[in-house]
């Protein structure tokens, strides 16, 4: 039996906000330790892995590992009807019904909405995610997630968003991280300087650089990855010339969401 409860729908609403625009379905793995979710976009260019430990839930009962594929678009619709302070209950029996039930209860007027989701196939997930060796990453940048989202939006409005191949070139040296894109009639560069601790900013921009790196990423995917900002106010971007880049958002001591994709390589 699987029975979980969250007294605030906010967390799950934010999870769906962070993944449902790029990923159409996901594999949900429920085990004693918590929920592990994985999804890949239809072109298998991006993979997202989310961990929510059991402690993230107000009630967590899972006496047998349960794995299910769910349609994220349908779930996002259901969650859009939910209010942030609705109590969510997630239940599944292993009665081979291949459905999971989400119940939303609004605390003020006791209205209850019940959604049954049928299990669906998941395109190629779950996959085993190896611990990529730190040494392979030339640079890691930690910055405010709202800042990363703002930069992606600015570059998308400037870049030739009609052109599906518009890239953002992320370059890191020891002082700053640059975001560059080419539009129809010009280019745009946004420079983020590493904040000195003396500035004591609310949210620092920190750079760990082994060697300079400059990589090109599809701007549409960067925009989707920046939606992780619903779950965390910091994003860590790990860049390697020959491994998947990782965009990680730690979810306050209960887990993380990580987006992976390879840089575009000059032909």
């Amino acid at each position: 039996i699987l029975e979980l409860r969250l007294v605030q729908a906010t967390l799950f609403k934010n999870v769906l906000e962070a993944i449902s625009d790029l990923f159409s379905k996901a594999n949900f793995d429920f085990s004693g330790t918590g929920l592990e979710l994985q999804a890949m976009d239809t072109s298998h260019v991006a993979l997202v892995a989310l961990l929510l430990r059991a402690e993230a839930f107000n009630h967590y009962l899972c006496d047998r590992d349960l794995s299910m594929g769910l349609n994220l678009a349908d779930m996002a619709k259901a969650f859009r009807c939910a209010n942030n302070d609705d109590i969510i209950t997630i239940k599944a029996e292993e009665d081979w019904s291949d459905t999971v039930t989400f119940t939303f209860e609004s605390p003020e007027d006791g209205e209850i909405s019940i959604f049954d989701f049928d299990f669906v196939g998941t395109n190629g997930v779950p996959l085993e995610i190896p611990e990529f060796p730190e040494s392979e990453y030339q640079a890691k940048v930690r910055m405010p997630s709202a800042k990363f989202m703002r930069i992606c939006k600015k570059l998308s409005s400037f870049g030739d968003s009609g052109d599906r191949d518009t890239v953002v070139i992320i370059s890191v040296d020891k002082e700053c991280v640059n975001f560059f894109t080419r539009g129809k009639t010009g280019t745009s560069t946004i420079v983020c300087r590493q904040t000195q601790t003396v500035d004591k900013p609310k949210e620092p921009t920190l750079i760990e650089m082994k060697e300079q790196v400059s990589l090109a990423f599809d701007l549409r995917y960067m925009n989707s990855f920046s939606k992780g900002s619903t779950l965390s106010d910091q994003v860590t971007i790990s860049l390697s010339s020959n491994l998947p880049a990782v965009f990680e958002y730690k979810i306050a001591e209960t887990g993380y969401i990580r987006y992976y994709m390879l840089p575009r390589i000059e032909e």
Binding site: H44, V45, L47, E128, P130, P244, L262, R264, I265, E267
Partner: peptide, 14 residues
Amino acid sequence: GRKQSTITNYFVRT
């Protein structure tokens, strides 16, 4: 142009 590779061959099928 720049070539985009898929991500799958960096992860292991379970």
